[in-house]
């Protein structure tokens, strides 16, 4: 058990668990936001596990998830949030915290991993995954806010 695996376990227990719980019950708006949190945190968990277990193949899983996770959230937001939330005069719960969580979580995970990996193509891959996560967070926040 090293620090990377401990961080991944923490993210799983304190992040992905509650996200999946919220994604399984409640209003559609809250569930879409929870699904977005879950995919984001799972992507970060894969990055940490790749370093903790020493298996670079897991980074490919994080890469796929960084693209498909926000895309899935956009699909759900388009299908479930058309005009309903706007009538209630508020955004779904958890939307306000989405951008800070994406920014802080991505930076806190990708930057130490880049430092440990050292210069090379693997670091560029990590930076691309971080950029995809940030862009995905911006796109999904906008989609969830504007129904």
């Amino acid at each position: 058990m090293n620090g990377w695996l401990a961080a991944a376990a923490l993210l799983l227990i304190a992040g992905v668990g509650p996200s999946l719980w919220n994604a399984a019950r409640g209003a559609p708006g809250r569930r879409v936001v929870a699904q977005n949190y879950a995919t984001l945190l799972l992507c970060l968990v894969f990055l940490l596990l790749a370093q903790g277990y020493g298996r670079p193949a897991y980074v490919d899983l994080a890469l796929v998830l960084s693209v498909l996770g926000p895309a899935g959230t956009l699909v759900f937001a388009r299908l479930l949030l058309t005009g309903e939330e706007a009538g209630e005069g508020g955004e779904p719960p958890g939307t306000r915290r989405l951008t800070p969580v994406v920014a802080v979580g991505t930076a806190a995970t990708v930057l130490p991993l880049c430092v440990v990996t050292g210069p090379g193509r693997a670091t560029v891959k990590l930076l691309v995954i971080g950029a995809l996560l940030l862009a995905g967070g911006v796109a999904t926040t906008r989609a969830v806010r504007h129904g």
Partner: peptide
């Protein structure tokens, strides 16, 4: 270019 960066 992205492919070349990503592969092992």
């Amino acid at each position: 270019a992205l492919w070349i960066v990503f592969i092992g």
